[in-house]
Amino acid sequence: MPKSFIPIAFPQQTPPPEGAVILAADIGGTKADLAFFEIKNSEPVLVKEQRYPSKEWNSFVEMAQDFNKNTTRPQRICVSFAGPVRDGKAHGTNLHWEIDSREISEKLNIRPVFLINDLEANCYGLAALKTDDLLMICPGKNHEAGNAAVISPGTGLGEGGLFWDGQAYRPFATEGGHSHFAARNELDWELFLFLEKKYGHVSWERVVSGPGICMIFSFFRDVKGWEAPGILKTEMKAHDPAAAIAIAATEGCPVCQETLRLFMKYLAEEAANLALKLKATGGIYLGGGILPKIWNETHQAIFNEYFFAVGRLDPLVEAAPVYLILNQKTALWGAGYYGAFGGV
């Protein structure tokens, strides 16, 4: 069993034989990271990795065959996938793939093959983190051991839980990012109506994600009449539009700054919801690829303003320490660790 300063319980304590190789993958709606982990001194060590654009490939099997060419075949596979996993199968939420662990096993002739949700992998990946992989946002008052949670905005909004069994955390997946968005004031309600007209159902993922940043920006521009610099339109077409908005915010663009203010407000509100629902006194971990790139003192102040505004149960939320995960390969490491210590 791997030892770390965040104790994570895995299904199996005994690692594969020394030198065994695990193919781990973290597949999201935009990108897919594949890596080989080799067992050294009873723990997985990353030895090779490569990034693929998810939507340019038809299947994980094709990716794996490309990644594995001219190398020794791995003994195990673990795939972290952005979508609900049921009976070893999943359909992508933001990637139109069907993925089946049994089919992967048959086509690649490798056993075992584990398929886990990406936020479950993110939770397992906490086992691989060092102290400098985390930034403390709030220390927590009267901190006590208890459940924890991970919330990760990216192409979508992932949410995962960690049940505290008294000695270690036991990760589990959720699809909480698809629960109903809750408007709290008139501006929220206007945004809700704007999104409802476009999507029908409005979930937290529609506002707390990369595409969510773009939707909030569109709302301010098209509904509220805020002006945006002409160059921004060009940058949004040429590059990742959410990233272009974030960069423009740092350069003083008012509509972009207001967009990120609302994004951070909604992140804080849903993180607080998660803390309450899971009684996460053990901690809230902010993950995903967006936050480490945009986090600053202004955003931290916005987060703190809204995270603690939960009414009568303020003390429960105040007890939860909040951390920003700086290591953007946490889910990939989680897949590597689960590949080594998952149940066979």
Rank of each mutant, 00 (worst) to 15 (best):
R261F: 13
F114A: 02
K3Q: 15
E269I: 15
E186C: 14
V113R: 05
K89N: 07
A228S: 09
Y306A: 08
E196S: 12
P229W: 09
T30V: 12
F172M: 02
F172L: 05
A340Y: 06
E144F: 11
E270C: 12
V79S: 06
Q257I: 12
F307N: 03
A280N: 01
P44Q: 05
L126K: 10
P11C: 04
L23S: 04
I231H: 14
K277V: 15
F220G: 06
P112C: 04
L119V: 14
Q65F: 08
Q50L: 05
C138T: 13
G166S: 08
D165N: 10
A243W: 15
P53G: 12
A182F: 14
E318P: 06
W333Y: 13
D33E: 10
N68T: 13
A242Y: 13
I247F: 12
G146L: 00
A340C: 13
A244V: 15
G161E: 03
M264Y: 10
D118L: 03
T14P: 03
V255H: 03
F217I: 07
G29H: 04
I6V: 07
A301V: 03
I137L: 11
D118Y: 05
A320G: 13
I99F: 01
E205G: 02
L95F: 04
P139Q: 08
K31A: 12
R221Q: 15
F67S: 07
E103P: 06
F217Y: 07
Y199V: 09
G210E: 05
P211E: 01
I137Q: 08
A168M: 15
F217V: 08
P211W: 00
E186F: 15
T250M: 09
N94C: 14
L313K: 13
I151W: 01
D100L: 14
Y285T: 02
G28E: 07
M1S: 01
K224Y: 04
F263P: 00
P84C: 12
F217M: 07
M63K: 02
R102C: 14
R76G: 11
G176Q: 11
L326G: 11
L157N: 05
M1Y: 07
F114M: 02
T14G: 06
V310K: 10
L326A: 10
N327I: 10
L134R: 01
F194E: 06
L260D: 08
I27S: 02
Y266G: 00
E98W: 06
V255K: 04
A248T: 07
E175C: 14
G289R: 01
G177R: 00
E18D: 00
P84N: 08
T30N: 09
G212S: 03
A149V: 07
G342D: 00
D240P: 09
G28L: 09
F181R: 01
P139C: 10
K107I: 15
K224H: 04
E270V: 15
A309W: 13
R86S: 03
A128H: 14
T298S: 12
Y124F: 11
E305K: 08
S42G: 14
